[in-house]
Amino acid sequence: MLLDLFYILVFPGFLFLSAFALWAEYFDRLVYARLQNRVGPPWFQPTADFIKLVAKADLVPTAANPTFFRLAPIIALTAVCTAFIYIPLWSTSSLFSFNGDIIVILYLLTIPTLCFFIGGWYSTSLYCRIGAVRTVTQLFAYEIPLFMGLLAPALLANSWSITEIMQFYIDHPWFWAFNLIGLIVSLIALHGKLEKAPFDIPEAETEIVAGGFTEYSGRLLAFLRMTLDIEMIVGASLLAAIFLPFGLQSGPVVGFLVYLVKVLLIVFLFSIARTIFARMRIDQMIAFCWQYVVPLAMVQLLINLILKGIIIR
């Protein structure tokens, strides 16, 4: 019991997750800066930002609904932290594993998006409302390819449990190569979920200031930013677990290092994508997802179905 609590709160749970998330934000910003020929922030910048925000006063707009306005960031943060404990990191098993955990994780990862919407909508500021509506509109564009992409390997493994998917990879070591399209689809969809350029439409600075986050300040803003950072780690870990099954049997230390490399590689890819594209318009983003990403995901599903029907059996 006490050990479980340690797992959840300290390692690899909340504390480790927060520290790693902040460090990953630093890594992302550093890479982003270096790609743009800048110096970038010092290593403690995200942490310092977090501490600074936490120390500041929370302002709730008078016209806002205080309950939803305050609850949204907290629920969002809780949801992403909860999702993390179901993801296996360096071995095939997570802290708490059961059949169907992959579905639970996907739903837990949807909650922050909805919280951003609710927080933005109940801020009642015009920028926030436009941002909130854009958040949800965008959700309909990326959520389906994300589900299709992530569930394709599950189809192959014939299980809704991540542990069993990873077990399947141990039995069939080269099958990850067949899921590369799914990896690409999931990366694009996750990028949209994290609202990073070119999909940063809901918080497009030059149009709607900070979108749904415009009215947030102090601790609540710190939570929102932390949510996005942790969501990035959770999403990257999930992708690493499902699509990059390397170093699973090499013991905790090496396995852990391999895990870090995998997550940072995904973060690095995100930084590059952030650097080389211009922000899309919301209509372009939806058209892009439905015209290119969803068909790609379908191709992946088709490949897996064929694999399952012909080769495995």
Binding site: R34, L35, N37, V39, G40, I272, T275
Partner: peptide
Amino acid sequence: VLNHLFKKPAT
């Protein structure tokens, strides 16, 4: 941009 990863920052 990848080239710039190995260049000194202009700052």
